[in-house]
């Protein structure tokens, strides 16, 4: 049995942390709004803890299936230029990204 859920009182700081984890540079106004709304939403959804007991298995598909395979045949991939055509920045036939390492690294 999972621990009973303490009614979530989600703080502005917590929302800021979650936004950072999700790579969203949210504004101060959004933090205020989301903290208020998330508190209401999470309080509403926490009732899932009321019903499902430990002996209930989880479900994710209406038709049980395991180990789905398809024949392993080689086939052409998408043309490189077609894929790169949608990229925001390209260099030398590759995706160009901003620097990954910080200056100190």
């Amino acid at each position: 049995m999972p621990d009973p859920i303490v009614p979530p009182r989600i703080s502005r700081a917590e929302v800021a942390h979650l936004a950072h984890l999700a790579r969203l540079a949210v504004t101060d106004d959004e933090l205020d709004l989301f903290a208020r709304q998330l508190d209401i939403i999470l309080t509403s959804v926490a009732r899932v803890a009321d019903v499902a007991a430990a002996d209930i298995p989880p479900t994710s598909h209406a038709v049980a299936m395991t180990n789905v395979f398809r024949p392993d045949r080689t086939r052409p991939s998408l043309p490189r230029e077609a894929v790169l055509a949608g990229a925001p920045a390209v260099e030398d036939d590759k995706f160009r990204v901003p620097r990954i390492l910080s200056d100190e690294a």
Binding site: P2, D3, I5, V45, V48, A49, V51, A52, A53, I56, P57, P58, T59, S60, A62
Partner: peptide
């Protein structure tokens, strides 16, 4: 507590 429980609720609904 959240995702796991919610997937169990699916079983109860099924």
């Amino acid at each position: 507590a959240y995702y796991g429980q919610a997937q169990k609720v699916r079983t109860l609904i099924a």
